[in-house]
Structures are given as structure tokens and as C-alpha cells.
């Protein structure tokens, strides 16, 4: 058996495969569908394997793989599904749940009662521009510079999208917590 092919598979298995969860999570947030996410993740991993020689050792393998996931999604999947309504990112108001809970739960303990699936659902309800930055930063722990490179936008754009994305998500989760009775709405 070809030893360079062996070597390639070994290094791919050691450096890329451990990020399969991240690949799947990002695919899931892009497609918003478990089955399509699996297909997208599988396709992206195969592409990554075939272009593994282009990966520069020592750089962030996770960011490299997630770039392939996103490119694959844009090229092949997005056209097939309905485009979400595009929001004017500039017009969303500033929001934090903190003033609502400051007196009763300043540490945000009510967050702990919100289950995994609900957090995922809230993320999936965000507009795509917001979803991407939240997942790449908060779930996959990429730096602003890495996210900017991956999305092909300036760092300042990442910063402002992330700020607004987290605010929107926080509002959703707070409203959900109120609805579920995890925390009482502030008396008006």
C-alpha cells in the first residue's frame, strides 16, 4: 500500500476527524435540518480529505474545515432551499435581558434551566448572518479574525453582527424562559 496515502489518512484522522462534531453542528445550523446536515457534513469531509494537501499544518484545522462546510453549502445546498427573509441588520434595536432580571436573578441562573434543544432552536430561528457568527464564535470558539476570514467580511462586521446576534438570541431565550415560568416577567 502507498505509504504517502497512509500518511495522509493518518494525519487527516488525527487532525480533521476530531472536528466532526463541529462540522456537523455548523452544517446543522446552516441547513436547519438534521438529515441535510448529515449529508452536508459528509460531503464536506470528503472534499476536505481530497484537498487535505492544501491544509497548512499548524493553522486552525477547525476553521479550515468549517470554511469547506460553508462553501459546499453555498454552492450546492442553498439554491435548493427557500431563502430566509433577509433582515436589515442595521435596524435591529439594542437589547439586553439584564435590566429585566437584575433584581431577581442577576447571575442569570434561569439560563441553566433552558434545555439543549431549545437553545439550538433559538439559534436556528436567527437570520443566517447572525446564525453563522454565533455558531462560529460561541459554539466553535473561533476568533474574530478567523471568523472574518471564513466569511470574507471585515473584522468590524463580525464584531457588530456578533453583538446583535447575541442580543437577539438573548431576547428569544429570555422570552422563552418567561413563557416556561423559569423566571417571572418583571412587573410593569
Amino acid at each position: 500500500m502507498d505509504s504517502s496515502a497512509d500518511e495522509k489518512r493518518r494525519s487527516f484522522e488525527a487532525e480533521a476527524l476530531p472536528h466532526l462534531d463541529a462540522v456537523y453542528r455548523f452544517a446543522r445550523s446552516l441547513t436547519r435540518d438534521a438529515q441535510r446536515a448529515e449529508d452536508l457534513a459528509q460531503e464536506a469531509m470528503l472534499k476536505a480529505y481530497r484537498s487535505w494537501h492544501q491544509y497548512r499544518p499548524g493553522t486552525n484545522a477547525r476553521a479550515w474545515l468549517l470554511t469547506i462546510v460553508r462553501n459546499t453549502f453555498i454552492n450546492q445546498y442553498r439554491r435548493q432551499q427557500h431563502e430566509g427573509t433577509s433582515v436589515d441588520l442595521g435596524e435591529m434595536e439594542s437589547y439586553t435581558a439584564f435590566p429585566e432580571v437584575q433584581e431577581r436573578d442577576p447571575e442569570g441562573k434561569f439560563f441553566d434551566r433552558i434545555v439543549d434543544e431549545e437553545v439550538l432552536r433559538a439559534i436556528e430561528e436567527l437570520p443566517e448572518e447572525f446564525r453563522e457568527v454565533v455558531v462560529l464564535s460561541d459554539l466553535e470558539d473561533l476568533s474574530y479574525a478567523e471568523i472574518a476570514e471564513l466569511l470574507g467580511v471585515p473584522v468590524g462586521t463580525v464584531k457588530s453582527r456578533l453583538f446583535r446576534a447575541r442580543q437577539a438570541l438573548q431576547r428569544k431565550l429570555y422570552e422563552y424562559a418567561v413563557e416556561m415560568g423559569y423566571i417571572k416577567a418583571r412587573a410593569k
Binding site: R28, A97, P106, G108, I114
Partner: peptide, 29 residues
């Protein structure tokens, strides 16, 4: 306020990590 926001980001990271690739996908890859 900063501690509250920290708790919020920790929630996202923790809940996010709970989403794992299905075993079937791992096997297929």
C-alpha cells in the same frame, strides 16, 4: 452585567457542545 453576559455565553458554549455528530455519520465518513 458583565457576569450576567458571561453566564449567557457559557450557556451557549455548554449547550452547543451537547450537539454531537450522530454515530451513523461518523461511521459513514
Amino acid at each position: 452585567h458583565f457576569e450576567f453576559q458571561r453566564a449567557f455565553l457559557e450557556l451557549l458554549a455548554r449547550r452547543g457542545a451537547a450537539i454531537r455528530a450522530p454515530e451513523e455519520l461518523r461511521r459513514r465518513v
